[in-house]
């Protein structure tokens, strides 16, 4: 399923659409405060754009942009951002995930610090969800044997 097919229409359209989809996904992540959306939805859209890239350009090209090792790394890093923000609150003598205590570090009001904490958390969720969706799709569509391994 992840080998490049020379369907010119699908290829070109997806080539043009992918940057916009990705930007839209980032918009959804960043504007979760004001409109529907947030880290999870944006992450899924971002992951879907990566899957689109994989489906249209094939794994040989997609691996230049998003190799599977990076996907595994990012899925760790995403949750680490989340849990790390939570742990950071422990070091400023708050409870776990108490973003209000970060106000002293960020030099803003507590409510604003909570808002920023939410933003950071959403970014972490977005990272994790994107890379996990991509890696699950890669595993399921190849059955776990990546094309580069098969050549041996």
């Amino acid at each position: 399923m992840i080998f490049r097919k020379d369907d010119i229409i699908v290829n070109t359209i997806s080539r043009i659409l992918i940057p916009f989809i990705q930007l839209y996904a980032l918009y959804v992540i960043m504007h979760g405060h004001y409109s529907p959306g947030g880290g999870f939805q944006g992450g899924v859209i971002l992951g879907a754009s990566m899957v689109l890239l994989l489906l249209t350009r094939g794994y040989d090209e997609a691996k230049y942009k998003f190799p599977e090792q990076i996907a595994t790394l990012f899925s760790s890093v995403g949750v680490l951002i989340y849990a790390g923000i939570g742990l950071l609150c422990l070091f400023v003598l708050g409870n776990f995930l108490d973003y209000g205590k970060l106000a002293a570090l960020l030099n803003v009001t507590p409510s604003h610090a909570r808002s920023l904490g939410i933003l950071g958390v959403e970014i972490g969720v977005g990272f994790a969800v994107m890379s996990v969706m991509y890696s699950i799709f890669l595993d399921i569509s190849t059955g776990g044997v990546l094309p580069e391994d098969e050549e041996e």
Binding site: P19, Q22, L26, M30
Partner: peptide, 24 residues
């Protein structure tokens, strides 16, 4: 999309756009 033009959101937009343009 955004419709918010304060410094914070514009800089967010700048970063996001930069990342995406670098990637794509």
């Amino acid at each position: 999309l955004s419709g918010k033009f304060d410094l914070f959101h514009l800089s967010l937009g700048f970063i996001c756009t930069f990342v995406i343009s670098y990637l794509s």
